[in-house]
């Protein structure tokens, strides 16, 4: 089993804002995307199309998924995280999030907009239905940078 001491995920402030603004733009529906990088550090955000757009579900377009994963491979990037929004609920993985967590090596990043003025971002590892909170570090953020599971002001 990996991660006795779970590795966190690090994103630059610009990438973090790109992710949050993409998710906010699709509210009240859920939105989703891929975080690519190296060694747990995000270097590229890929906003993806949610082909099941409702306030309580997301499903990435498989065709886009193929395109992005191949591009990442070509550029030497790994799958660091998969992000999505919870427009009106807490940023904790739902039953469906856990059932469809097929990439245990990737962080699950959830941004809650239940308080639209103060989106709350959290990161987890989900391995065989076990959910472990991990640090989400956004250096230079207006929140508590460097601490685990940032709660950040709206960008």
């Amino acid at each position: 089993m990996e991660d006795e001491q779970p590795r966190g995920i690090e994103m630059g402030l610009e990438s973090f804002r790109e992710m949050v603004e993409h998710l906010r733009a699709h509210a009240p529906n859920e939105a989703c995307g891929i975080l690519a990088g190296r060694d747990g550090r995000v270097v590229r955000v890929y906003p993806m199309t949610n082909v099941e757009p409702t306030p309580y579900s997301y499903f990435m377009d498989p065709k886009e998924q193929f395109t992005v994963m191949k591009e990442m491979r070509k550029e030497g990037l790994s799958l660091v995280g998969i992000y999505h929004s919870h427009p009106a609920t807490t940023p904790y993985p739902s039953r469906k999030d856990r059932d469809l967590a097929f990439y245990p090596e990737a962080a699950t990043v959830i941004v809650s907009f239940r308080d639209p003025g103060e989106p709350e971002a959290r990161a987890y590892r989900i391995v065989e239905d076990r959910v472990t909170p991990i640090p989400l570090v956004v250096p230079g953020s207006p929140g508590r940078a460097g601490e685990k599971n940032e709660k950040l002001s709206a960008a």
């Binding site: 306030p55 427009p87 739902s94 059932d99 990439y103």
Partner: peptide, 11 residues
Amino acid sequence: VELLYFMGGGA
């Protein structure tokens, strides 16, 4: 051949 697991979930 490319194999990808679905990426999905929901609140």
